[in-house]
Nucleic acid binder design. Structure first.
Lengths: 226, 226
DNA sequence: GACGCTTCTGATGCATGCAACATAGGCTTT
DNA sequence: AAAGCCTATGTTGCATGCATCAGAAGCGTC
């Protein structure tokens, strides 16, 4: 039993090496400059450089780091322009997801979304921004997964990874009045889905993402890189 | 100079290793079963297994192959369902691209698109399906690139790679009457872009992609995997 | 003092070797 | 003959060593 746990844990470490490095990069523990070299990560995770290299290549492919040949691996923070581009994509993909979910009219996710919305309203009332952020996150993911389009989920995953930098997170809930507006928009989306109105759901979702992205983009912390 | 050419060629080989393997996989030269092992590719391209492994990992991440740990790498042909999913994404992304391009109202790509449309009409009249397919390909790519959203281009690239299996290509032009309809739809899209009507352009593009995907999906060669 | 060249260093890129494991086929047993 | 075990094989996964090269620091020249 002890052995089993050991094996499982180590296997998880191996499988999750990419994720662990990704978290390191996204977590902001590293300067936006050069990520400590492969050798460091190798020692840190107690593996050879080879799997580290593989993981870094993936991250490069995901757009999170930039590997300059023969030089090193650098944390690749998105420019303001790229953030705008990513939000445009987000709007489109989530719109599609809402549309597909509305067309399915599946019941399972509907109850989850209803419950989520209730809790969100509660969190908004008590100004529990942490809980609210988590609920928003779940709301969007539930809809995307509920689209039942796995390729869409994959692309969305990639997209969100690029938007997952610590500095960009939780911004949408820091604006006064945004919580209430956001909740209203969520309700509008859910209404359209419940009415099995794909077009309306897509429209409502796009409006919502557009609005929330505007808030995120006006955040002063982003003026750095324009 | 001779040396320079050598260096450039070899550098291109290295940079393009991923592309070359991808072409091998997409080209259908391999059975849908197991891709010949890393050692074969290593010998084929006269490199070590290490860079081969890196490339294969990328392809796995792109969804083109499946790497079963300790077993081997398998060509991963998309199921019919996945093709449907991918076309839904294509519709959404190209719709977004058309919308963005219409909003920009850029002149450069407009002339390219106009010219492309003229040549397409010519190819349709002469039933030159090869030329037509190439022109359609360029038309869509011109619009996507013209969106001036590089992240969109990246995601579109990934998407198209997954749709690039040899067996799926050129299907849309094999249906009677499709060439004319397709040309009409292209013109509608271009009209909307020229009128700087983002909403109309998106709608027209989505209609077009939807129509052409329906043709592609009704192809009998796809009934195999349902 | 500034500019250009050379050397030096640190990191990556790749090749190679070995161990681990999934699968297949034969072998034993019933 | 069927079922289960066991060995054999082929492949991957990883560790390590070496060559290569970008960039920096030091040196010499103008």
């Amino acid at each position: 039993m002890q052995d089993d746990l050991e094996v499982v844990r180590e296997a998880a470490d191996r499988d999750g090496l990419l994720d662990r490095i990704r978290r390191l990069v996204l977590g902001g523990d590293f300067p936006p400059g050069a990520v400590v070299p492969e050798a460091f990560l190798a020692q840190e995770f107690d593996v050879s450089r080879t799997p580290i290299r593989e993981a870094l290549k993936q991250l490069q492919h995901e757009g999170l780091v930039e590997i300059r040949p023969k030089v090193g691996t650098f944390v690749r923070e998105p420019t303001r322009r790229e953030i705008i581009e990513l939000f445009q994509l987000k709007e489109s993909l989530e719109g599609l997801a809402a549309s597909l979910l509305a067309r399915r009219g599946e019941v399972k996710e509907l109850s989850v979304l209803r419950r989520n919305l209730e809790e969100s309203e509660m969190a908004a009332l008590t100004h529990d921004t942490d809980a609210y952020a988590r609920l928003v996150h779940e709301f969007h993911w539930t809809i995307v997964r509920g689209s039942d389009n796995h390729k869409l989920v994959e692309h969305y995953e990639r997209l969100m990874n690029q938007l997952a930098y610590q500095r960009l997170v939780l911004r949408t809930v820091e604006h006064p009045g945004r919580l209430e507006a956001s909740t209203r928009e969520h309700r509008a989306v859910l209404d359209m889905i419940e009415h099995k109105d794909p077009f309306g759901a897509e429209s409502a979702m796009r409006n919502h993402v557009h609005a929330s992205s505007r808030e995120a983009l006006t955040d002063p912390a982003q003026d750095r890189r324009s």
